[in-house]
Amino acid sequence: MSTFTDIFRKAWRPLLLAATCAFTGPAAAASMAAVDGGLVEPLFPIEGEGATVVAAFRIDVLPVTNAEFLAFVETHPEWQRGNVPQVFGGAAYLRGWASGTDLGALDPDAPVTNVTWFAAAAYCEARGSRLPTEAEWEFVANAGFSSELGRNEPGYNERVLSLTASRDPVPGPVGLGAANYYGVYDMHGLVWEWVFDIGASFNTGDSRSDGDRRLQLVCGGGSAGAVDKSDYAAFLRYAFRSGLTGDYSSGGLGFRCAN
């Protein structure tokens, strides 16, 4: 069975090549970290299904900020609040902005939130990049602060759980926390982040198991099949993603780009 990542990589390869040649857009200067790639174990492994192979990729060092998103909508007015059809903007698109091109009281350096998957994907596309896949995002999120795999660092799971569960409902400026092994900031302590393939871990193509996996996140079964039962932050992330649809947005959900 070809994994989603394989299909995805094939689909995007032409665009990635193009991106390296013509990198344009509002945040062309965005700093990205190079990640060699490797294996991402599924949260709920199913027999006969191995780890997802993640090829080398690059990912934004910081989440996309309000200021960066403002620059984007100024050059792409179709993504300004009021111009976006409900089907792409959802109910709460850019809630808190004073107008289509005015951040109002929002901190320009805070991550942009209240953006739908469609808006996030359009932003990254305009920049010549894309949203990271769930596997890519998790690969970076699993990195420690000083080593490739966080769970090998003493107290890592506890630290990440605390960052995830104890954060402020209104996110502050990006980049204030500690960078991880790849030099990437704010994977845990600031906002949830969109991934390209939301809910990928629940769509295996084997419909018999899809429902069961989802139920493991919403019912008493809990961690019955999970590899690392103490990685509570991962449970929180997967549970959050399991409830998402593309037109959803909230004040605690932002994104960053990859390519």
């Binding site: 109910a91 709460a92 954060r167 139920l215 019912c219 549970a239 409830g243 959803y248 605690g252």
Partner: peptide, 30 residues
């Protein structure tokens, strides 16, 4: 909407899937 986490409810008085757990799974602001 100010919640960070998705939530749901399992009522032990309910006869049916998860006591309503799957039916009520909602993200912040839903």
């Amino acid at each position: 909407p100010s919640s960070l986490m998705p939530h749901n409810i399992d009522l032990h008085a309910v006869t049916g899937q998860g006591g309503g757990a799957e039916a009520t799974l909602i993200s912040p602001g839903q």
